[in-house]
């Protein structure tokens, strides 16, 4: 393990640990409104100040991290797996399978998602708890987010299909699913990893934007998405630098993840 990797690991452990220790680190919780100290700058009682409703920003960042750090990667994993299965399989199988899968992918890409999500919201009851709401949202993102990656994977799998090593493997009598799992999928790994890492920040932000449809995390629960959304229209960064903490944290966490994984990749390759 390189120094950078160790450092990145340490950062991740620290962030994850802090988010799970939120109950101790920020005992007042994320919902408590200090209405006489709204929009306050950092102080010894509120390390990152308070938001417009007087809620402790530090607590909100910790609890938001817990939500997003668990759910965004889970959703990214789901969508990446779907993309791998659908795109990878279509490219590998070729012929009618490929045409059918790509037709479905194109259909998925061209669907008016806004309206479908509005419909999804209409089907959900209004009284869902904030936790259920955010879990459902990330699940939706995971289920819906595979299509563009599937096209890339289909193309990659298509070229793998006529590669020497697949021919060699077929000549060795390996076939069908086994060939796909053992010989095609592992070679799609770089594309899959890229897709996974791109998806995480995209999903974190999408979750925030789905708020306008009544999906996503619900008040008063925070998520990185909802915290980042508060940065909209922030003009004077210089005057209130502490408000950028959620953004900085997002960048740090995503980068750390990438360092850890990419180093493993190098060793593996």
């Amino acid at each position: 393990m390189s120094l950078g990797q160790r450092l990145a690991c340490a950062v991740l452990v620290l962030v994850l640990g802090a988010s799970f220790a939120a109950n101790w680190l920020a005992p007042a919780g994320y919902a408590r409104q200090y209405r006489d100290a709204t929009d306050a700058p950092p102080s010894h009682t509120h390390w990152l100040g308070t938001d417009e409703l007087g809620r402790d920003r530090f607590a909100r960042v910790l609890y938001g991290t817990r939500i997003s750090l668990l759910l965004a990667p889970a959703a990214a994993l789901l969508s990446t797996l779907l993309a791998a299965l659908i795109g990878g399989f279509a490219g590998y199988a070729g012929g009618a399978w490929k045409r059918a899968a790509m037709a479905i992918t194109d259909l998925f890409l061209s669907l008016p998602w806004l309206f479908l999500l509005i419909t999804a919201r209409a089907l959900l009851p209004l009284n869902v708890s904030p936790v259920v709401s955010v879990v459902v949202t990330f699940l939706l993102l995971g289920v819906l987010g595979w299509s563009s990656a599937a096209r890339v994977l289909c193309a990659s799998a298509s070229s793998l299909r006529s590669s020497d090593f697949v021919r060699q493997a077929r000549a060795a009598g390996i076939h069908g699913r086994r060939l796909f799992w053992m010989h095609v999928l592992p070679n799609l790994k770089p594309v899959l990893f890229a897709q996974f890492w791109i998806s995480i920040p995209v999903f974190i932000l999408s979750e925030a934007n789905l708020g306008i449809l009544g999906l996503g995390v619900a008040e008063p629960m925070p998520s990185w998405g909802s915290l980042l959304k508060e940065l909209e229209g922030l003009v004077s960064v210089g005057e209130e630098p502490w408000r950028l903490v959620p953004l900085i944290l997002l960048v740090i966490v995503v980068t750390s993840f990438q360092i850890v994984i990419s180093n493993q990749e190098e060793v593996a390759a």
Partner: peptide
């Protein structure tokens, strides 16, 4: 809505705040 949610919590009422697009 979030302030009202907090106010009503004090008398034991649990409020879910839902934001919807205007047409919906």
């Amino acid at each position: 809505a979030v302030l009202i949610q907090d106010d009503l919590q004090k008398i034991g009422i649990h409020v879910n705040v839902v934001t919807l697009d205007f047409p919906s």
